[in-house]
Measured scan of single mutants.
Amino acid sequence: TIDDAFRAIERAIQAENEGRYREALKHFLDGGEMIVTAAEKEASQKVRNLLLHKGKEVLEWAEHLAEWILE
């Protein structure tokens, strides 16, 4: 659900702030994927587009974090 997705993102932010970057990455990926999944089930085109945009933002952040971890 969207609530689960945002809880995962909150955990990711907390982990990132505490320097637990790999854990943060996992939570960002989980949250982003949950948002995209919820968007695919959404009946309203406007809400679907907003959710897809937010999911994409979260997944892009996860990608940047992963690249930073690997440096």
Rank of each mutant, 00 (worst) to 15 (best):
I2R: 02
I2F: 05
I2G: 03
I2L: 11
I2S: 05
D3F: 12
D3K: 14
D3W: 14
D3I: 13
D4H: 11
D4C: 11
D4A: 07
D4Q: 08
D4G: 07
A5Q: 02
A5C: 10
A5Y: 06
A5R: 00
A5I: 12
A5E: 07
F6I: 10
F6E: 04
F6K: 05
R7H: 07
R7K: 12
R7A: 09
R7W: 03
R7Y: 03
A8Y: 08
A8D: 02
A8L: 15
I9V: 06
E10G: 10
R11D: 05
R11V: 04
R11M: 09
A12F: 02
A12H: 01
A12G: 15
I13L: 07
I13C: 13
I13T: 04
I13A: 07
I13V: 09
Q14G: 04
Q14M: 06
Q14L: 09
Q14F: 05
Q14K: 12
A15T: 02
A15H: 07
A15M: 09
A15N: 02
E16G: 10
E16M: 15
N17M: 11
E18Q: 07
E18G: 05
E18A: 12
E18F: 04
G19Q: 05
G19H: 05
G19E: 01
R20N: 08
R20L: 05
Y21Q: 00
Y21G: 01
Y21T: 02
Y21I: 04
R22Y: 14
E23P: 01
E23N: 02
E23I: 03
E23D: 12
L25N: 00
L25H: 03
L25F: 04
L25V: 11
L25D: 00
K26N: 05
K26A: 10
K26T: 06
H27M: 12
H27E: 07
H27Q: 07
H27P: 01
F28P: 00
F28D: 00
F28S: 01
F28Y: 14
L29I: 11
L29F: 07
L29V: 07
L29R: 11
L29G: 01
D30R: 13
D30W: 13
D30V: 12
D30A: 14
G31R: 03
G31L: 14
G31F: 15
G31A: 15
G31Y: 14
G31C: 09
G32K: 05
G32W: 15
G32M: 15
E33S: 12
E33M: 14
E33G: 07
E33L: 14
E33Q: 14
E33Y: 14
M34K: 11
M34F: 05
I35Y: 07
I35W: 06
V36N: 08
V36P: 01
V36R: 13
V36D: 01
V36E: 03
T37C: 11
T37I: 12
T37W: 05
T37V: 13
T37Q: 14
T37Y: 06
A38I: 14
A38P: 02
A39D: 02
A39N: 03
A39E: 02
A39G: 02
A39W: 07
A39H: 02
A39I: 09
E40R: 10
E40V: 14
E40I: 15
K41T: 08
A43F: 10
A43R: 10
A43E: 11
A43K: 14
S44Y: 10
S44I: 07
Q45D: 13
Q45R: 09
Q45Y: 07
K46R: 09
V47G: 04
V47M: 12
V47T: 10
V47C: 12
V47Y: 06
V47R: 08
R48A: 05
R48Y: 04
N49S: 10
N49Q: 08
N49G: 07
N49F: 07
L50N: 09
L50W: 15
L50R: 13
L50G: 09
L51S: 00
L51K: 00
L51W: 05
L52Y: 06
L52P: 05
L52N: 07
H53F: 08
K54N: 03
K54C: 15
G55H: 11
G55V: 13
K56Q: 07
K56P: 04
E57R: 12
V58E: 02
V58P: 00
V58N: 00
L59W: 06
E60T: 07
E60C: 12
W61V: 02
W61N: 01
W61P: 00
W61M: 05
A62T: 03
A62N: 00
A62W: 07
A62Q: 00
E63Y: 13
E63H: 13
E63A: 11
E63G: 08
H64M: 11
L65N: 00
L65V: 03
L65G: 00
L65K: 00
A66W: 14
E67D: 12
E67F: 08
E67Q: 11
E67L: 08
E67K: 10
W68P: 00
W68A: 10
W68Q: 09
W68I: 10
I69T: 01
L70Q: 14
L70D: 10
L70S: 13
L70T: 12
L70M: 10
E71A: 14
E71R: 09
E71M: 12
E71H: 09
